[in-house]
Simulated assay, not measured.
Amino acid sequence: MVEHHKATLGPNATFIGVKGGRKRLNTPALLLDLDALERNIATMAAHAKKVGIHVRPHSKGAKSVEIARRQVAAGAIGICCATLGEAEALASGGIANLLITSPVVTPVMIDRLIALNLKSQGLMLVADNPANVDALAAASANAGRRLSLVVEFDVGQGRTGTTSVEMAAALARQIKASLHLHYAGVQAYYGHLQHIPAHAERKAAAAAQMDRVRALLDHLKAADLAPALVTGGGTGTFDIDPDGGVYTEVQAGSYPFMDREYLEIAMTAGGASPFAAALFVQTSVVSANREGFAIVNAGYKSFATEGGPPVVASPELPGASYRLMGDEHGGVQYDAQKAELRIGDVVEFLTPHCDPTINLYDRYHCVRGDTLVDIWPVDARGR
């Protein structure tokens, strides 16, 4: 069991190690099936080794020092963070080789970044703007330690990133010319492709964007700016990203957990997913006065809602569906001829979108079978 101060474990700490404790938890509770988590991490590590690509798992969903430790122990080259706050939290937990995948631009946040760079080994940051690069160079000069920058290249997401090969090359040249910065490589992340349902369509869309990355790399090489690192890709394209021969590492983030959105797509050419659901929200039935309809104590505050409704994982409820019924409540419709829910019954749900759902909770309740074996903090929640 990972040691945490008792006071941080919350009201369910008393059930750790108690056989059957999984069903006795105060709810709603975020559950993490450690057997499934460990298999998922091992599966991704084995795949990456087989195809000859590095994995730098994204922690924007997990937000967990303990999960990052396990990924690094399995062979991950480092960890991605979406925000400076996430990087600070993971660095405080001893995680090195962090890549912050979004720009850091305001003066007060640049000050925090420079402070983090002084103590975090292998820290890198993406940039997409020359004025920001100048500001980062000036701050690094004052601190006396070089900062490693990765040029971000937009591959169709339309969010951050340089928007042309020429713009990306100019930024790379600017970084390389600075005495106070290190040109570390290129980021090309196509998050908008990760949930395309059909594998063939997802592969074709990714291939089109990898062609653009390849053109950028050819241009950079000709300009004596060939990057040592090319990072991008994700869970939905984990078996596609290596095929293009452009990426040196993959930023998969959801694979340790999986969620409804990922489990509903064809993860591989054959359709089957090598990763299993490991993340659930456990709830309790608080009212059951209507036939075939029960109210559980989990609503808007318990599930991320932009990805559609969660799915009942247990118990088996034929024809079950969930609908939000307020901040604290949700309704479960089911076939009353085949099952019955009573007050106090436990209902576990597969999350619709793991990342923002995790961010609603302070703790993971780690289970093996019917036993609660540990409680881990969501270290970077809200950061």
Rank of each mutant, 00 (worst) to 15 (best):
V151E: 13
H195P: 01
R70D: 06
A137W: 12
T106I: 09
N132V: 15
D128M: 07
K119C: 12
H180M: 03
L98H: 04
S59M: 15
V155D: 08
L98Y: 12
S59V: 00
H180F: 14
S92T: 11
I175W: 07
A73Y: 02
G61D: 09
H180V: 02
H182A: 14
A127G: 10
I100Q: 10
A137Y: 09
G61S: 11
A139T: 06
R112E: 12
V104K: 00
R173W: 00
I95D: 06
T83M: 01
A188G: 13
Q174A: 04
G61I: 04
L181F: 11
R145I: 03
T83S: 12
K119Q: 14
T83H: 04
A87H: 02
I77L: 13
T163G: 13
A177Y: 11
C81P: 03
V151M: 09
A74T: 00
A131E: 15
N132L: 14
D134N: 12
S148T: 00
C81G: 01
G156N: 09
M109P: 02
A62H: 14
S178Y: 02
G122W: 06
L123S: 13
N97C: 09
E88I: 11
L113D: 11
I196H: 08
T162W: 06
G75W: 02
Y190H: 15
A184L: 04
T106A: 12
A169G: 09
V150Y: 12
S64H: 03
P107L: 00
N129E: 15
S178V: 00
L123I: 14
R112K: 10
A168L: 07
L136N: 10
A143Q: 00
L98F: 07
